[in-house]
């Protein structure tokens, strides 16, 4: 058994978007800092763009940033922050809890503050995130497990 991987600096948000299938570039900027017990903390942000192709369908009469896109923002922020392990990107494995508390409409900004890690033997790590809208209203809270998949893509 090799030692579990540790976090290292990842890529920028545009590269993260281009590295895998994604409905939209869901992060414009990301900042990474050291967290307790070998973990890290991150802050990331995005502005809801009504011209986005997916947002045009959600919904035609009113642009609402879907709750699952908040998860996408978190996924891209985490990926940008931690990068690849053995050539694989981390992915959302278990959503322990997600709450979407206030809507994000066209032009609203979303700022995610999250703590990650430490990394377990099975290459998974816990993520706890709070998402705040531009006016300071809490928009979402998420507790999840992300994981770098095994190289063969097994469960």
């Amino acid at each position: 058994m090799t030692a579990p991987p540790t976090f290292r600096a990842g890529t920028d948000p545009a590269q993260t978007y281009a590295a895998a299938a994604a409905p939209l570039q869901a992060v414009e900027w990301v900042e990474v800092g050291a967290g307790p017990r070998g973990g890290i903390t991150l802050r990331a942000g995005v502005t809801v763009d009504p011209a986005d192709v997916y947002l045009g369908g959600h919904f035609p009469q009113l642009t609402v940033y879907p709750g699952v896109f908040t998860l996408e923002t978190l996924r891209q922020a985490v990926t940008a922050a931690v990068g690849c392990c053995a050539g694989r990107l981390p992915d959302l494995h278990r959503l322990r809890s997600a709450r979407f508390l206030a809507p994000l409409l066209a032009g609203d900004t979303l700022t995610v503050t999250a703590s990650l890690g430490p990394v377990a033997d099975d290459q998974s790590f816990e993520v706890t995130a709070e998402c705040v809208r531009g006016d300071g209203v809490r928009a979402a809270t998420v507790r999840a497990v992300f994981r770098w998949p095994a190289p063969e893509g097994g469960v």
């Binding site: 590295a19 299938a21 994604a22 409905p23 699952v68 998860l71 996924r75 050539g87 990107l89 959302l92």
Partner: peptide, 28 residues
């Protein structure tokens, strides 16, 4: 589907996994 439009050329096969966000939305 448009979620595949932005992938850089030459990325390996695993990068074409359908986004978890869209899978959850589809179930929802």
């Amino acid at each position: 589907e448009p979620c595949y439009r932005g992938i850089a050329e030459g990325e390996p096969a695993d990068r074409y996994a359908y986004p978890a966000s869209l899978l959850i939305e589809s179930f929802g």
